[in-house]
């Protein structure tokens, strides 16, 4: 029983590897589907913006409010903007953005491609002389890889603004003082690795959503399963990639 599970796991990992390889082969070969890429960037980036912004704002506010009592206890209340900015920019904003996108975009791609597969729309595309992998997969994976870092930067900014409001609920910190402290604290080693890892988060969310949708079967039940497993696997991958990113940053002494 265990060996069968392991076999399924290894076989699926191999299939995802082949799917990723095919993405690299197809994505950089002409003909390029620019209009579809732009359309996907609009749906993936612009349409996810409000959700990411609201979540990031709440996270910034909540982290600040919850960190305050501990710092007050040690007489280090003045360190609140510094501490909050590092934790938000390095970890919370990129990971929360990726998880929100894994839920919203990963499931959307999985369900959309899955339903296209079971209703023969992907076959129809192929018989009309369009490479469905290039048109549907390459564009979506590129769009998630490009848009999630932009959403992550936006989430950084909005969560820091939430942190500013959180700081001012019980204390008084001027707008200038707050942002001076934030920018004095943040270094190259905080900002760049955190942005870089969001590219990998975006790629993982796109490739898993597309893989699950494109290989969907068993009718409408399969569509639901594709969407569900796209979210589960891409969320798990976000945490694994985050762990790897932290280790690499630590090894490079950027922490």
């Amino acid at each position: 029983m265990k060996s069968k599970t392991l076999q399924i796991f290894l076989s699926e990992t191999g299939d995802i590897g082949r799917f990723t390889y095919r993405f690299f082969v197809e994505a950089f070969k002409p003909r390029y589907e620019f209009s579809e890429l732009l359309r996907q960037c609009f749906y993936i980036g612009y349409k996810s913006l409000p959700l990411v912004a609201i979540t990031a704002f709440i996270m910034g506010l909540v982290i600040t409010i919850q960190s305050r009592p501990t710092l007050v206890e040690f007489g280090a209340e003045g360190w609140l903007p510094k501490m909050v900015s590092v934790s938000l920019v390095r970890e919370i904003a990129p990971v929360i953005t990726a998880l929100i996108c894994a839920g919203k975009i990963g499931s959307g791609i999985g369900a959309e491609l899955g339903s296209m597969k079971v209703t023969e729309q992907i076959d129809a595309m192929e018989v009309s002389g369009t490479n469905p992998f290039k048109y549907l997969i390459a564009t979506r994976v590129m769009a998630t890889t490009l848009m999630i870092p932009i959403l992550g930067i936006l989430a950084d900014a909005v969560s820091l603004y939430g942190g500013y409001l959180g700081t001012n609920i019980h204390g008084v910190v001027s707008w200038n003082l707050y942002w001076n402290q934030v920018f004095d604290t943040l270094t190259f080693g905080d900002v760049v690795p955190s942005i870089l890892k969001t590219f990998f988060f975006g790629f993982a969310i796109g490739i898993i959503g597309c893989y699950k949708g494109y290989n969907s079967n068993k009718g409408t039940e399969g569509v639901g399963r594709s969407a569900n497993s796209a979210v589960v696997i891409s969320s798990l991958l976000v945490f694994i990639l985050d762990l790897l990113a932290v280790q690499i940053t630590d090894l490079m002494r950027l922490t």
Binding site: M116, Q121, D123, A124, V127, G129
Partner: peptide, 23 residues
Amino acid sequence: NNELDEIRVKIGFLFQSNALYDS
């Protein structure tokens, strides 16, 4: 694949499920 695309222009295929693009 390229040769298949060329010949497919000369063949129409009507799918059982119609396969119209929903989006």
